[in-house]
Structures are given as C-alpha cells and as structure tokens.
Amino acid sequence: MATSSRAEPRPSRLARQRRASREGRSAATPYLYIAPAFLLYAAFLLFPLVRAAQFSLYAWDTVSPAKFVGFGNYVKMFNDPDLLGSFGHSAILILFYAVLPICLGLVVAAILNRAQVRGLGFFRTVIFLPQVIAMVVVAVAWTRLYSTDGSINALLRILGLGDLARAWLGDYTFALPAVGLIGTWVETGLVTILLLAGMGRTSRDLYEAARLDGAGPVAEFFAITLPAVRGEIVVAATLTVVAALKNFDVIYMTTRGGPGTSTAVPSYQVYNQAFGLGQVGMATTIGVTLALLIFGINLVLNRLGDQAVED
C-alpha cells in the first residue's frame, strides 16, 4: 500500500490527501510542524539578511538620518585599500586554514591508512580536540605561545635560532601568518579525520591490485587514495575555507586587526565599522559581500563535489 504511493515521482493532490488521511493527518499537518521553526528562523535570520541588503544601500552613522547612496558603499569599499586589503588577508588565511591542513591531512591520513596501528582511538580524540575548544580560549593559549617569552621563542633559542625570536603577533610581516597557523592547528585534526573516514571506505581490492602491479606507496597514493577521497577533500575545503572567512574571535582576541591593518579581515571590519567607527552602511556592505563570497565558494565547491561523485 505504502509502496505504491511512494513509487509515484510527483504524487497528485488527491494522492497526497489520501496518503495524509491514511496517516491520520490533515493536509495542513506538515505546515503546522514546520511553522514554529520557520517563524523564528525567518525573524532572526532571513529578515535581518534582507535588512542587511537594504542597510548596505544607505550611509548611516547611527546619529544623523540615513542617506540613500545606492551602490555607493560597494564602490567605496572596492576603492578603499584597507577594506580591499582585508579581503586579501582572508585569501592568505585560506592558505593556512584550508590548503595547509588538507595537504598535511592527506599525508598523515594516507600514512595511517596503510597499516593499522594501536592507539588510533586516542589519537582521534586528541587531534579533534582543538575543534571543541572555544576559539577565545585557543586564542589566549596561542597569544602566550607567541609572546616574547613564550615557548615558540624559547624553542627557537634552544635550536640556536634566537635571532629569529620576536613578538610574533606584533610584527607587521609575521602577525598574519602567525594568526593563520592558529587556524592550521585548529583545522588539521578535523580534515585528517574526514579523510581517514573516506580512505577507510575505499575498497581494499584496489590496493591489492596496485601492489600486485608493483606500485610503491607514492604511486599508490596518487593512483588510488587521492582520487578516492576527492569528495571528502571538497567537504573539508568547504568547512575550512568558511572557517577562514569567519574568524572574528581569533582576530579580536589576538591582534584586533593590527599591527596597523596587517591582520584586519572582513569579519573584523564588519564589527569595527559598525561599533567602532559608526559606519553602519559600510559595515553591512562588507557583511553582505562576505555572505555573497561564502555562497559563491559553496556553489563552486558543491559543483566540484558533484563531479567527484559522478566520476
């Protein structure tokens, strides 16, 4: 009985009603189930998003009346070297939050996948731990490690590289990579676990066949492992790229965009423009641009993911 109606690709209104009444519900039931969730979701997410798009078309300093400027804020943003530069900083952070963890994760997961070792459960617990610690706490820990008398400088001195020691987060050149490495530390565990799960699903026969053909570990990696986890790589990339773009807490806690504007990122600029400089229109403009950027990245990576599954 149930199978006949489920087999229809698009059930007619009559079939829907018949099925609904068989399950003891009226046609309104699904909407009643969804309505409370939808109302809160719309009020606190969809509506503010529409308002953001609207706000971004105005110049407003929270005191004097808002003035309509069309796409003026967007033009201004793209012509402001500091604001544009903050998007550039995000691009660099993506290298540290996404590219580096994926490369490291691939190597580690491939090595671990070749032979099972004991203690893997404990290892998983440990490398996933950074994901569950509040970023504020992570930032406090790393601020200490990066400080002049912190353990990174201590390690450099032990290695006889004391000349390189510096206040990493206060350095114009090194502050951004230093913040980026915090991201690498946080994301690598997640990426490794994702990739390990993907590799675990790969057929053992493929590896046996490759070995009979005389493939070494490196050839095996490029011929079998890498293609098999393309889907997982796409997922890992989506998660980590978005994490790189939404890293307000780390920047706020470690550098507040400094020194100068060397670590300013869009996420921080939204906050600073709105609540530091009182430029609400510009703040929402940056926020909307960031959202569009994230939608675009999701779209592109999703396409790649679908291709990976089809092949």
Binding site: L45, F55, K246, F248, A274, G287, A291
Partner: peptide
Amino acid sequence: WLFYLFLFGIMVPTEAILVPLFFD
C-alpha cells in the same frame, strides 16, 4: 523549496545579519 530555504541558512555568516539585527 521550503527545505532549500532552511538549508540556505546554514551558509549565511553571522557577520551579515548581526548589524541590522542589533539596530532593529
């Protein structure tokens, strides 16, 4: 389409909605 509307919310960054929401 209703489901896609919910799914869409997963992508929206907090940074985009928070400023107008605060003033409202």
